[in-house]
Nucleic acid binder design. Structure first.
Lengths: 148, 148
DNA sequence: AGGATGCATAAGGTAGTCTTTATGAAACAA
DNA sequence: TTGTTTCATAAAGACTACCTTATGCATCCT
């Protein structure tokens, strides 16, 4: 019987920012899974670089709120920031974004359409996998080329 | 001063399942932004089709918990389910997934890296890069081809 | 120096996610 | 029919994401 794990409610780190490990795809998607943050990303995709307060003003959000979301986006390596005097400029980390999407692509590339290969019987597969429960080694799939 | 909107806490629909509009990229990413759900997706990517209880057993999660996450994945059009007698088989909706990722790719394709090469095929008229700061005219970008 | 600007952080509250236990409902088997 | 299997749903609780207001802390300007 499965042990179900103690009680790892969601995941730790409420807002303590450790750079978010490379393999944390869920954390990456979680960061993108918020309308406000997605609008920030959308804006940064248009202008390449922008001041924090400019984005906040444009999107009509308060400054602490902007700072909050920017913090999460930074932790997920979706945006990078750079101080410029008393201002802070932020831009998309397109390289990291592409890398994560490539990871996701690799995850999806399991056995989507196995042609006509009759796989295991419906009687479940006890130790079928030799598997890589997560963060699989390497499968060399086609990269997405999502960014221009 | 910006009005900041009343108080739309997060977004409506706690778990009432309406198929989640096509344009809701944030909802899509939010569905992927959970370790348990991502493991379900990973598993379904490997086997193409699987019984609900089999996936739950394999991942070591309780049956109601599996049902909960499956509900969200279904709402986000990430998996589809099909009754087979008293069992329920689920599989990835790879088409929908690709479509969402294409949307995201398009969102990213704003004006990030002007790309020094500027390879314009002869016969194509430029006059295209008039930097539209907001809600730009969605230019067609290359689709990701993330799934095999 | 004093003040203004730009951003980060603290404190507090509300509402939502995610979990387990318990129950309901439908398809099979006897 | 009764019982078993398979999944969905309800109820309740723990915990956190997210927002606003208020404050702190540099950095510029005069």
């Amino acid at each position: 019987m499965p042990v179900e794990q103690p009680r790892p409610h969601r995941h730790v780190l409420p807002l303590a920012l450790s750079p978010l490990p490379e393999a944390d795809l869920a954390g990456y998607f979680e960061s993108l899974g918020n309308p406000t943050r997605l609008r920030i990303v959308e804006r940064l995709a248009q202008v390449k670089e922008a001041r924090v307060s400019d984005v906040a003003l444009l999107l009509g959000i308060s400054q602490p709120r902007m700072s909050w979301h920017l913090r999460l986006l930074r932790r997920a390596r979706i945006v990078t920031t750079k101080r410029e005097g008393r201002e802070v400029l932020c831009r998309l980390d397109r390289e990291s974004i592409a890398a994560r999407l490539a990871n996701f692509s690799q995850l999806l590339g399991g056995a989507g359409e196995p042609s006509q290969e009759s796989n295991q019987k419906p009687g479940v597969d006890p130790a079928e996998s030799s598997s890589k429960p997560l963060s699989g080694p390497r499968r060399e799939r086609s990269l997405p080329e999502v960014i221009s």
